[in-house]
Structure formats: structure tokens, C-alpha cells
Simulated assay, not measured.
Amino acid sequence: MKTRFLICSFFLISIFNMKAQENFSVSANVKTEPTDKIKFNETNIGISFNKNIGAKNKITNTLEYSNLKVNYELGSNTAYEQLDQFNQIKNRFGFSHEISNTTKLNFSITPMVNFQSNLNTDDFSLLGSFEVQQQLSSKTFISIGVARTTIFGTPKFMPTLGFNYQINDQSSLLIGFPDSKISYSNNIRNKFSLNNNFNGNFYRLDQQNTLNNNASKVSLSQMTTALEYERNVDKNWLFNFKAGYDFNKKYNLQDNDNHNVYDFNTGNGYVLGVGIKYKQ
């Protein structure tokens, strides 16, 4: 109980500095990802704010909670049916500094806990990123950096790269890793985008000895291509709809050394999502 209190207090520190201001938002999203053998349902809620500090510095903070529910095909994987729910709490703090009119440094740190049901200190992990953003012209800029991320199912250091081009007043293009996107807006209320993302996560298990295979966590990863539509209902409320497909989806049990000890062979599947956001 003491451990859970200390970890939760660590994440809640950021909330005390959140004040009702122009750049404050609250969001909620639900997503379903059915595959041939397993159905994944995820719910996510988040609170974020950003604030300018002087003319050249900006801070952002996002606190999120997500719950992943896993439904197995009836009669299959009966030994693992207790692996039906996972939780994550993470807080991303970002800092941006303008070196010049064309060069910017972006830094972030993301403490998080990924757990099955019982929260303890072993569930704590630390992610982060650092990148340099360089403007090449009025319509083009690139970003190069490195990040400790879980996009392949375990925390790893990875290079990041992005090429951004403003095609016209309605359209923009991002080509990079792990994210690529092309966006189009026909008016101030509607925005369409085609996204391609590498994404993943992991969750530590409560009792590894009950699985009889030295598994200590589950690992998920996939590449998602999706079409998204965002509707700005008024100046405060936005709705988001998402439909796409997961490629190369992996759902594995791993030991403490990140070795796979069991592969669920889920196969690929489509993804559907809907979200709501309030901002002021």
C-alpha cells in the first residue's frame, strides 16, 4: 500500500501546477483491435497543458491513464486467460527552447508504471527523448533526435527522424520514423489525416510463477496505418474518429531479459477508435 501511494504521488505532482488557462485540455479515447484469435480493447484518458516561459521557452505536461482489456477466443489459450487486463499511468513533461529563429531544441521525460493489477516499484520505467528541429524554409523543417521508447514492445533507445512540409494552407506532410502523416483540412472545423505509426507497449505481470514459463511481462507491438477525421464542434469541443489496420502485430510473453517465452500468434487485424476532447 505504501509503495502504491508513493508511485501515485510521483505522478500527481504535476497536477498541482495545472491551472485553468488558454492551453488546457482533457481527452478520452476508446479503441478496439480485433484479430483472428484475440480482441484488444483500450480506454485512455488524459489531462494536458502547455505554457510559454518568456519568448523562447515552452513547457508541456500530459498525464494519462490507459486500460487494456484482452478477450481471448473461446477455448483457446486457456492457460493464459488470467492475462485479461493491463494498466498504464504515465506523465510526459516536455521542454522546448528556441536557439534561433530557425533552430529549436525539444526535450521530454516520461516516467510511467505498466502493471497488471497490483502496483509496485518494479513496474516503474523511465522514457524520454531529445531532438533538434531545424527550419529549412518557410514551409519545410526537419527534426532529428533519439528517444527511449516502447514502440517495439520493450524500452529501447531509438533514432527519430521527421521531414515536415507545408504543402499549402490546407495540407501538410510528415515523413519520418516512427510517425508519418499527411493531413488535409477543407475548413476550420474539419481535418482529415492518413497516419502510419510504429507503436507498442509492455506490461509487467503480477505473478510470473503461475505461468510456468518464466514470463514476467507481456509485450505488444504493431505498425498501424489509419485514416482519422477530427471535427471541431465549437471552440472548446472536438471529436475524433479513426479506422485503420494493424500490420505485423505481435503479442508475446517475455522474461526479465526481454526474451520471448510464448507467442500468441494473434495475426493482423483492423483498428477502430473514437475520442472526445475539451480544450480552453
Rank of each mutant, 00 (worst) to 15 (best):
Val233Pro: 00
Ser180Cys: 14
Arg148Gly: 10
Phe247Lys: 05
Glu131Pro: 00
Thr62Ser: 09
Lys249Arg: 15
Val30Arg: 03
Asn258Ser: 10
Phe95Pro: 08
Phe247Ile: 05
Ile167Cys: 07
Val70Ser: 01
Asn232Ala: 09
Asn213Thr: 01
Val26Pro: 06
Gly46Lys: 08
Asn87Gln: 11
Leu68Tyr: 07
Asn50Pro: 02
Leu68Arg: 10
Glu131Asn: 13
Val233Asp: 01
Lys156Thr: 13
Glu228Ser: 12
Leu127Ser: 10
Gln116Pro: 04
Asp257Tyr: 14
Asn71Leu: 02
Ser48Arg: 12
Phe141Pro: 00
Asn260Glu: 10
Thr210Asn: 07
Asn87Trp: 05
Asn197Ala: 10
Val261Gln: 08
Leu126Glu: 05
Asn87Ala: 06
Glu42Asp: 06
Lys31Glu: 15
Thr160Gln: 12
Ile99His: 03
Thr102Lys: 14
Ile276Gln: 01
Asn101Gly: 15
Leu238Ala: 14
Lys104Glu: 14
Lys181Arg: 14
Arg231Gln: 12
Phe247Leu: 08
Asn164Ile: 09
Asn232Phe: 07
Thr78Phe: 06
Ala215Thr: 07
Lys279His: 13
Val70Leu: 00
Gly153Phe: 05
Leu173His: 03
Gln116Val: 04
Gly273Phe: 06
Asp179Gln: 00
Asn71Gly: 03
Asp234Phe: 01
Asn114Gln: 07
Lys51His: 09
Leu174Lys: 09
Asn212Ile: 12
Asn236Tyr: 10
Ala28Val: 14
Met158Cys: 06
Lys191Leu: 13
Val261Gly: 04
Glu228Tyr: 06
Asn265Ser: 11
Glu81Gln: 15
Asn195Arg: 05
Ser180His: 10
Ile276Arg: 04
Ser125Gln: 13
Gly200Arg: 11
Ile109Arg: 03
Asn260Ala: 12
Ile109Gly: 08
Met1Tyr: 13
Phe130Asp: 09
Glu230Val: 15
Gly75Trp: 02
Leu238Pro: 00
Phe198Pro: 07
Arg4Tyr: 15
Asp36Gly: 08
Glu228Val: 08
Phe247Tyr: 11
Leu272Thr: 10
Glu33Val: 02
